[in-house]
Each structure stands twice: as C-alpha cells, then as structure tokens.
Simulated assay, not measured.
Amino acid sequence: MSLSGWICVVTGASRGIGKGIALQLSEAGATVYITGRQEKTLKETATQVNERGGKCVPVICDSTRDDDIENLFERIKQEQRGRLDLLVNNAYAGVQAIFENQDKKFWESDPSMWDTMNNAGLRSHYICSVYASRMMVARGQGLIVNISSMGGLRYLFNVPYGVGKAACDRMAVDMAMELRSRGVASVSLWPGPVKTELITQMVLADDAPEEADSEYKDIFANGETTEFSGLCIVNLAKDKNLMSLSGKILMTCDLARRYGIQDIDGRGIVDFTTLKFLLTQVPYVSWLSSFVPSFIRMPRFLLPLLSNHF
C-alpha cells in the first residue's frame, strides 16, 4: 500500500492501458478517479478495482469537452480538499481510426483525422494538466504522466498520430521546466506494444480482420499487459529521486530495469533498445543476435540523433 492516501486521476480508464493503470494504482492504496464516456465500461472498471480492495471514483467525462474536464477537477478539489497527487493523461480516441485508415496517406484521409487523433489526446492532456497543476502547485508536490509512444520520435501509423505524440513528449518536458521549482514532476511515458482489448480483437485474434498487418501481429504477440504501465507508474511515484527524472521521456523497459520489476504475468519486458533485439530486426544479420549479450544497449542520446533532420 505504498500510495495509501494518494489521490489520483487516470483519464480514459474504462479499458486498455488506462484501466490497467487504475487497477495498479488502486492496489497500491490510492483513491483513483477514473474518466471515460461510457458509464457501463467505467462501472466495470470500478467493480474490478473494488474487488481488489481498492478505492475508485468513476466519473463520466468526455475528454473533448472542456466543461467536463473543468467539472472533474472542481469535483476533486471539493471532495479531496484541494489534494491531487497524480494525474495520468491517457485518454485517446484514435486507435480505431488508425486501423480504418492504415493504408491511406494523409491527403487521402478526411482532414477530421487530425481532431480524431489529437482532441481526446494532446489537447485534453494539456487542459487536464492546467487544472491538475493548479492543485499540485498549491500543495508543493505532485506528478503528471503523459502516456505517449515511440511515434513521438519516428514515423508511426500516420501523420496526425506522430505529431500528437511528439507534442505530448514536448509538453511533458516543457511543463517540467515551469513546475520544477514548485515541487511538481512531469514526465512522458512510452509503453512498449501493449495487448489491449482492441489490439487483441483487431490484430491478435484468430478472426481478426484480414487487413491486420502481419508485422503488427509479430510486434504485439509478445506485448506488455495493460497493467504493466501502471506498475511502472506506481514505482515511479514513490521514487525518492523522482525530481531527477522530471522532464524526461521514460520507457517502460527502462523502468522495469530501474525498479527490477516484471510484467504482472511474470514475463520479462522486451527491451527494444538492446543491440540483441535491434539485430533481430535487420535482414541477413539477425543470426548475429544469438551471439550478442542482452545487456548491450543503444545509448539513449543516439535515439534523437537517429531522427535528427537538421
């Protein structure tokens, strides 16, 4: 119960990664406000939290509606006497659109794709962070986590997706600059491939649509559970050196190594930055991976250099 007494918010927690994060935070003793648009799925998450002995407050909140977001944080302010320890910006509404438009270029898709990818995502993350920061700064402590992905560094899925994730990363870094002196930390978290309910249905299931790319199946077959990101956040939240990590983009595989944790099903986490893994992705030399130790990793400073266009 390392987070006993903590007040947390997880947006988009009715399923997927958000649900997994809420379950892990509640297991650690936190009171978790979870948001989503569908009352039924929110209550299902709340029921699972309660079954594990956790505390959960489901709030119907459309992350594309500014009034809903403002009302959410006003409610927390009133009910918790101004206390908020952790915000996880996870709400996202673009996964279905990714699969529906996976063979289209940006000019072939409807321009509304931008809003689909970035309203319930980048824009709502910023608005939530504004209201959360006001409460955290007043108390001189807190943590904001943006759920992002490798799409913030390299092309992935489509143009609006990558732009949105890159902006989420930059937002976390820049917020940290302004929050550091107030005792509040801000980070961006990159999960690896995650076997969410939708990914299982659209990619991994035997009856998955024919257009599901075989490359996706290979990537997600050994993916993380939806709760592993939550386990990482629990350990991050209680890290005594948290402020030294503020303003950074963190990967779940790095946090697994930092805290010595495995996925909740006992599997180790695939480290996509090891030389061993990277060699398996290169045709004709993949056989060399069997001779390379798993502890040799790509230096982090090389990641942005690989995508540097200056």
Rank of each mutant, 00 (worst) to 15 (best):
D174Q: 15
W190Y: 14
W190I: 06
L255N: 00
T252L: 05
G183M: 08
K195P: 03
C232L: 02
L231F: 01
S181N: 14
V187W: 03
I219H: 04
A237Y: 11
S246T: 12
M251S: 11
M177W: 13
L255D: 08
G183N: 05
A237L: 12
S186Y: 06
S214Y: 13
T196V: 09
G230R: 08
L198M: 14
E224Q: 11
S229T: 09
V173M: 13
S246M: 05
W190A: 01
V187D: 05
A167T: 10
E211S: 15
K238F: 03
R170T: 12
E215S: 14
G183T: 05
E178M: 08
E215R: 14
D239R: 03
S214A: 13
L231T: 11
P209E: 08
T226D: 12
Y216G: 03
M202S: 02
M175V: 08
G223M: 06
P209D: 06
K217L: 09
S188V: 07
A185M: 00
Y216C: 10
M175E: 11
S229W: 10
F220E: 05
E227D: 11
N241L: 10
N235P: 00
E178A: 12
K195W: 02
V184F: 12
P193W: 10
E178F: 10
L204M: 08
K195L: 08
D207W: 01
C232G: 03
A212L: 02
K238M: 13
C253Y: 12
S229Y: 04
E197Q: 04
D239A: 06
K195I: 02
R182T: 11
A205L: 13
L204Y: 12
E210F: 11
V203C: 09
M243G: 04
L250H: 04
P191F: 06
V234F: 02
L179Y: 03
D169C: 07
I219G: 06
M177V: 11
L179M: 12
N235D: 08
L250T: 11
M243P: 05
E215W: 15
T225L: 07
M243S: 05
G223T: 02
D207Q: 07
N235A: 09
R170P: 00
A205Y: 12
R170M: 15
S229N: 06
A176M: 06
S244Q: 14
D169P: 03
A172H: 06
D254V: 08
L198S: 11
L236S: 13
L198T: 13
W190Q: 09
G192D: 10
K217E: 03
V194M: 03
Y216S: 03
P209F: 04
L245A: 03
A221L: 15
E227I: 08
P209G: 00
L198P: 01
S244M: 10
D254F: 05
L198Y: 15
D239L: 04
W190K: 14
R180D: 13
L231M: 14
M251A: 14
E197F: 05
S186R: 04
A212T: 09
M243F: 06
V234N: 02
E210H: 12
N235R: 13
A185Q: 01
